[in-house]
């Protein structure tokens, strides 16, 4: 049996596992956005950073080694996470009070877990669009955090590549692979894995907002650090 350590807690791991995988198997929560156990990790959101010997590493891409000492929660690490989360909020248009994903939104829940109450940076209010062209699903680009889960789900599970990220830096954005960029003209289908993977409120079924009452939403039932990732 092999062991390593997260915040002083001894954790068993299997050879080849990342810190995130081993932590999840042990029921230890490491905040994250772009990681999903069904897909290959790519460490883009950086929210899962942890400290190892004073250096920062992304837990979702760093393999565990025997006796590794990992710091998941301390003030310094949480501060970095808060800054990352804050930038995600101000770079999009995340209007939680009127967002139907509120209460079931991973960004909102991770931010709450990390203690982000209100961004101190200036909101950028980017001009983002809503694509409601598809009969069953809507894309609200205002809320995209570029986690690429839909990109990976469409490519790896659905074998379609409906979604892709284009542009760089602040111009990076989610795009739809169709002749006119509209979802209706893509190969997207409501049964696709990509249709249900979005951790925020970008890819949503139409005509049915707020069906789940307050108190029964995903993170109302169990806080993000206490539930298994689905």
């Amino acid at each position: 049996m092999s062991f390593f350590n997260i915040d002083g807690q001894q954790i068993e791991f299997k050879q080849g596992q990342t810190i995130m995988q081993a932590a999840q198997d042990a029921g230890v929560y490491i905040p994250h956005l772009c990681f999903h156990p069904d897909f290959k990790a790519h460490g883009s959101c950086r929210v899962c950073i942890v400290q190892i010997k004073g250096l920062y590493r992304t837990a979702c891409t760093t393999p565990v080694v025997e006796s590794m000492e990992v710091i998941n929660i301390n003030e310094e690490v949480q501060q970095h996470r808060l800054q990352l989360l804050e930038m995600l909020f101000i770079e999009g248009n995340h209007v939680c009070p009127s967002c139907e994903k509120s209460g079931s939104c991973t960004l909102q829940s991770v931010a709450e877990y990390c203690g982000l109450l209100s961004p101190s940076l200036t909101f950028r209010y980017p001009d983002k669009k809503v694509d409601a062209s598809h009969a069953d699903y809507l894309l609200d680009f205002n809320r995209c955090i570029l986690c690429e889960l839909c990109v990976r789900a469409s490519k790896e599970v659905d074998k379609k590549s409906v979604f892709a990220i284009t542009g760089r830096g602040l111009d990076a954005r989610l795009m739809v692979n169709s002749t006119d960029g509209k979802l209706v003209n893509s190969t997207f289908d409501k049964l696709d894995r990509a249709a249900s993977i979005c951790p925020v409120g970008v890819i949503l079924p139409k005509h049915q907002g707020f069906k789940t009452p307050i108190g029964q939403r995903k993170f109302d039932i169990k806080e993000i650090n206490k539930r298994e990732q689905d």
């Binding site: 009070p97 009127s98 139907e100 809503v130 409601a132 809507l138 139409k206 005509h207 049915q208 907002g209 707020f210």
Partner: peptide
């Protein structure tokens, strides 16, 4: 430009 089903909450 917002979806109609959002309006009662918005």
């Amino acid at each position: 430009g917002r979806p109609y089903w959002e309006v009662p909450v918005l």
